[in-house]
Each structure stands twice: as C-alpha cells, then as structure tokens.
Design a protein around this nucleic acid. Structure first.
Length: 485
RNA sequence: GGCCCGUUGGUCAAGCGGCUAAGACAACGCCCUUUCACGGCGUAGACAUGGGUUCGAUUCCCGUACGGGUCACCA
C-alpha cells in the first residue's frame, strides 16, 4: 500500500525550456521528493520532423542549474532505460499489436490526403472510422501489399469514462466524444498519446504530473491503461501559466509576452533560484502556518510541498513580481557571490582609476537584475553631458544664485582633503556645511551633479569620489566649475 | 461550435457556513536619507451574477455571464 512515489518530467526537445515547462518539472520533482520518492527524466522525441540540434542539452543544463536532479534519465541511467523515446522505438509496436489483437485498436490504411479532405468537408467531424471494421483478409492483404498504415485506438461508442485527478477531482467524458486517435504513426514511431502511456507504466511512474492542457485527453489514456490491463496512475494536472496581453486579456504564456524561457531569463540577469522560488508560488501555496512565507529554498519547497496546495485556476506570470524576487535574491547573495555572478554581465573595459570592489559593493543592493549593471555604472566611467540648470534643486535649496559658490566650496574642500575615503570626505563636507550655515545636502548635491551629470546615481557624492579616485574627481569638479564661465 | 475546466483587489494568493475578508508585488502618500535603492509607516483597491439550501453564505447546489483549455500521423 505504501508504494514509493515515482514521477517524471517528459519534455520534448524543442530547443528551449519554457517557464511553464520548468514549473511542471518543479512540481513533478517536488511531488516525488516530498514523499522521498524518485524523479525520472525522459526525453520525448518521437516527432522526427521537429528535431532540434542540441535541444536535449538545454533541458539537461536547465535541470542542472536549478538543482532539479533526477534519479533516472539520460546520462545517469537507471533500471528502466533507455530514457530517450527514439531509442525505445522497438518497445512500442508489440503493445500496439497486442491492442489490435484484443480489439482495442486497429490498422488504418487511410491516406493523409483522404484525412485532409475529410477535415475540410466536416469541420468538427474528425476521423470517420473508415477502417475501424475492415475484414481481417483485407487487412492482411493491405499489409502484405506494403500499404502504409497507422494503428488507431478503438474507442468505445457509448458510456462514459471517468478518472480521478488529484487537483481537479472527478473528471468525466462521454465516450462518443472520443476520437480514434493514432497510436502508431506511418513512420513506425509511436505518438505521444501512446508512447507516454507505455513508458510511464514500464518506468513505474505512479504520479503523472503535467499541465492542464492534457485534462481532456486523459480519458483516452486511462482507457489505454484499462485495455492493457494496467493500473492507472494518479493524475496531477497543473493550472496553466498565463501571460498578460497588451489589451488586458490573458492567454497561455508564450513568446509574445516577452522572455519566457529559462535561458532568456538567465541571460537577462535573473537568478535561477529566484526563478524557481517565484514559479513555485504560481499555482501553489503552502497553506497553514506557511501560507504567508514567500522565500523558499529548494529544500524548503521539498518539505512544504503538497498537491493539496495546488490551485485549479490559471495563474498570470507577473514580471514585476519576478523582478522583485530577483532583487531580493541578489541582495541576499554574499558580496563574493554577487561579484562572481555579475561578472559575465559587467563590461570589461573599466578605466584603471575605478575602485572596482567599492563600485560593486555600491551596486550590490541596487540591482533588480544583473543585466542592469552597465547602465547603472555609466556615471563612474564618464559623466553625462549637462547644463548648469541641472544644479538647481528645491529640496536642497540650490538656486541659480548659490550654485556656483556652493560648487566652489565643494571644490575647495576636496583640495584640502588628505584621506580619500567616502567617510572621511563626508565628514569634511559636514563640517564645511556647518561652517557656512547651509545643509550638507546642498554641497553634496552640487558635487554629485558635477561628478556625474545626473540627478540619480547609484551612491552619493562622496561614494562616487571614492570610486573614481582623487584625480578624476578633481577633473570632473573643474569641468563643473567651467560650465559657469 | 461541441466537450472539459475555472472565477476573492491590476497580479499572486489566504479563507475550507458566522471574519471589520489576511499577506505579497505593483500604485499612491509620508518618514528615513547625500540623489537613487533599501528600510519603516500609511492610503486606495476584491468575494462575476441570478436563484436556491440554511438561523446565517465568499465558502454547499443549480442556472447565466465571463475567462481558459481541447478537438493533429505535435507533444
């Protein structure tokens, strides 16, 4: 009774890892790991026309980067291999033939042309079951003549099929709604519809975790289990991930919504652990005393996860919240780790005067995603072009009249500075401000404008000074003074 | 269109017959501050709708509307 939970992630190699797919992998992984079970990776590449070079590597590296390690699968092996469907090609025909013998499937010799014509004539009719009751002799004759064929599942014509879904509950379907779907294609490969059922059973999968787009086709798969005399697995269908359209409507998350593959997100400066954390919460809530917790490590997710917490309604992927999560994760990185992680994003042509470590420590708490780094540090490399009106600032009481004197004072302070650190310089400015009877903010504002040419900078005036060094500071201050000439 | 599923603020989401209906992101305001960010405080904002059931419905049932999914020799 207390059987081991076995789940799988079975993507087809399309060349990129859709974020919705990744979430499916995550939930599948968590379902198994929460119960101390096994997680299997299987590659579904039975569509020979859509093969993409290197696509499997994308899947493997994504799982590697996110920490979703699998117990069985390509590369690691296992007792149920191979784990790539094209390498299992020989396994499927005998099950298909078994179904033909038991009356649950049949050979179909209809040409693609005929099918297409059928489709045009009757918009929603589907296959007309032309070959469903072909005499045995005719089937034998066609086979002998080498006429291409497919094998179709013979659906019951009446009654209802019902299965239990761990998330959605009882789901029923009238048998007459079911199409005689193709099990084996003319090229000898099985369809997804057939292959996944065979493989799931052979691999001992107990919980089929997948997106809810499969809800309506699951009755057909359940029937297949029944026909083969196998026990049906527990179905766990997940609510879909949606994206918001410009007009306010929502639809299945896709490329038109922006960066929706794991690779896109990482390239854009999102941290894998932030991505995992965010998508874990799209469609699932830990409930109870953890209902308000937002930050979870993978291990914490393993401990907290349960299917009861999975929602039924679709969830919209919110880039704003993803960004917030990412910023939080960046801030929580150790400085060493942060330095390592921004490195690939950071321009390599930093001028020699820049104190790189100090600069990065200033940026550590100010990035929402790593890719923002170069824009944010632009003011350290070179000040922006600006006019004297930029000095004006109401809050710090800088006016057209006092801007120049203020800037001159700031310059004089720096002339006499001995210790060139942000704290020491700041102390000097404070003292001078008091002496002059102005807000220190007024002096610092003017200095910062001269230094950067911007009203918004990552760090205050004295921090910028410390980063760019004395020589460059004086050069920029002089440049600022010259604007008034 | 047929079938299936869903519906708490703009978004995520708690709630599982009785609550002033949590919390987070976003928005807005204030504070902190050397600008920004961080942080603190606060404001605004939701049970799609009509009928039941019940002493009492966001919660249970039915209809309606709206949204989504699915109807391939794709997975």
């Amino acid at each position: 009774m207390n059987q081991t939970v076995v789940t799988r992630f079975a993507p087809s190699p399309t060349g990129y890892m859709h974020i919705g797919n990744l979430r499916t992998a995550l939930y599948s992984y968590l379902t198994a790991k929460h119960a101390g079970g096994k997680f299997i990776l299987r590659i579904e590449d039975t569509d020979r026309e859509r093969l993409v070079e290197g696509a499997t590597d994308v899947i493997l590296s994504t799982l590697e980067m996110t920490g979703l390690s699998y117990d069985e699968g390509p590369g690691v092996g296992g007792e149920h291999g191979p784990y790539i469907q094209s390498e299992r090609k020989d396994i499927y025909p005998k099950y298909a033939e078994q179904l033909v013998k038991s009356g649950h499937a049949y050979y179909c010799f209809c040409s693609k042309e005929r099918l297409e014509q059928l489709h045009e004539e009757e918009a929603n009719g589907g296959y007309d079951r032309h070959c469903r009751n072909l005499p045995a002799e005719e089937v034998a004759r066609n086979l002998a003549a080498g006429i291409p064929y497919v094998i179709r599942q013979k659906m019951p014509t009446e009654g209802t099929v019902t299965y239990h879904d761990a998330v959605f509950g009882e789901i029923s379907c009238e048998c007459k709604e079911l199409q005689d779907q193709i099990l084996m294609k003319a090229d000898g490969y099985p369809t997804y519809n057939f292959a996944h059922v065979i493989d799931d059973h052979l691999m001992g999968v107990t919980h089929v975790v997948r997106g809810s787009e499969y809800i309506t086709s699951t009755p057909k798969y359940a029937l297949l289990y029944d026909a083969l005399g196998w026990e049906r697995p527990t179905y766990v269908h997940l609510p879909l991930l949606m994206g918001k359209n410009p007009d306010g409507t929502v639809s299945k998350l896709s490329k038109r919504h922006g960066a929706v593959s794991f690779q896109d997100l990482v390239k854009d400066g999102y941290l894998p652990e932030a991505i995992i954390n965010y998508i874990a919460l799209l469609g699932w809530n830990p409930k109870k005393e953890l209902a308000e917790q937002e930050f979870f490590t993978l291990d914490e997710l393993k401990a907290a996860f349960s299917i009861e917490g999975v929602n039924k309604s679709p969830a919209v992927f919110d880039f704003d919240k993803m960004l917030w999560f990412n910023g939080e994760y960046i801030r929580r990185l150790s400085f060493e780790d942060f330095t390592e992680r921004v490195k690939p994003f950071l321009r390599t042509d930093l001028p020699a005067n820049i104190d790189r470590t100090l600069m990065l420590s200033l940026l550590h708490g100010r990035l929402a995603k790593l890719s923002e780094i170069n824009d944010k540090i632009a003011c350290f490399i070179e000040p922006c072009e600006y006019g004297t009106e930029l000095f004006l600032n109401k809050k710090n009481k800088v006016t057209a009249e006092n801007a120049l004197p203020l800037l001159q004072s700031a310059y004089d302070i720096l002339l006499g500075a001995t210790e060139w650190t942000s704290d020491a310089l700041f102390a000097l400015f404070s003292a001078k401000a008091e002496e002059l009877g102005v807000k220190s903010g007024a002096l610092l504002w003017c200095a910062r404008i001269a230094l950067s040419g911007m009203t918004v900078t990552p760090g205050g005036a004295t921090e910028i000074m410390a980063v760019i060094g004395r020589e460059e500071t004086m050069r920029r201050m002089e440049g600022g003074l010259a604007k008034f000439a």
